[in-house]
Computed example of a mutant assay.
Amino acid sequence: MKKQTSFSTKGNRTNLGPLSINRMLPNRYASKVGPFVFLDYIAPAVKEIINKNGMGAHPHRGIATLTYILQGEEEHFDSAGNYAKIHSGGVQWMKAGTGIVHDGNLNYDPETNSKIIQGFQFWINLPAKNKAEKPAHLAIQASEVPQKALPNESGWIKVIVGNYEELSSKIPNYSEQFLLHIHLEAGKQFSISLNDKIEAAAFLTTQNVILNDAEFEAGEFVEFSRKAGEIEIKNTAQTTVDVLLFGGEEYTEPVIAEGPFVMNSKKEIVLAYEDFYNGKYGEIKNKKGKA
């Protein structure tokens, strides 16, 4: 049986210089999908100017941030001393844990001939016990992202978070979670079955796609019902299509989100701000890859 669609939305758009940022989650229908509580989509755009000094340092607590760059280069630095650059197809994951300050640069990829930037930033809510852990960071280059060809020359699938068949992401799983990038050739399809009570949503990048026999437009965020069932993706276009499918088990602990912090109570939010203003998250000292 195919899963029913709960809703679809195109989110809210904000311009940041030449970049168009689409806030897909939270939205007016949902505040989370499994452990995912935030999704910004950077639509394809040409960026000529190179940032070198960061885009604005800010704190986080209680979550893990995940940046997936389809096109471009993303540079990361934080108050725990982590520094890394990823290029087109790469992933930056940062567990804020008890608190961290981070910043970065988003530029075109010097390894390609394109000045196009396109990508995603997710926030993954941590279980209460993991919110008290030390910060951590992973930089995963495109060649390290698990990937396999789909049957019948249909395309390919990448596992950004979680598992699919024999593929497993390097990113830690603190609950059942998945983030898959499905690339389908013209006239092909892909199906996946999900268990009962698993929350799931799809995001369509730059092409219209058929999801469970209904057509949705490029730029739409589509959430599905929680009942067990199948999600079928069909590409009826004459070009390739890309779909992100993500979700996981329901986050059942209280969720209190304010600014850059996601905690389990209002008291914890107040403490997160107090600790930040008291300098307990440290400061960024490493912006060039050197101590």
Rank of each mutant, 00 (worst) to 15 (best):
N82K: 13
P260D: 06
I160R: 05
N195D: 14
Q238Y: 09
A237D: 13
Y273A: 14
L25A: 10
P146K: 07
E74T: 12
A202M: 00
G247H: 00
T239D: 15
S175R: 13
I140T: 04
G219P: 02
S169N: 05
I210G: 03
I124R: 12
N113L: 07
I49P: 08
L167N: 12
I256N: 13
D275K: 15
G104V: 03
T239W: 02
P254D: 05
N264I: 03
D196A: 13
N130W: 12
I117T: 02
L211C: 11
K32W: 03
F77V: 06
K131C: 02
L126P: 04
K2D: 13
K188R: 13
L271I: 10
E220P: 10
M263E: 06
E258G: 12
Q118V: 03
D213Y: 04
I140L: 06
L245N: 06
T239V: 13
I157H: 07
I182R: 06
N113Q: 14
G62M: 01
H87I: 02
G97F: 00
N51G: 09
R23P: 03
K115N: 13
N130Y: 14
E230W: 06
F261G: 01
Q147I: 14
N173Y: 08
G279W: 00
L138N: 10
I49F: 14
D40T: 00
N278E: 14
H87W: 04
V161N: 07
A257P: 02
A30L: 04
H137G: 07
K148W: 04
V243L: 09
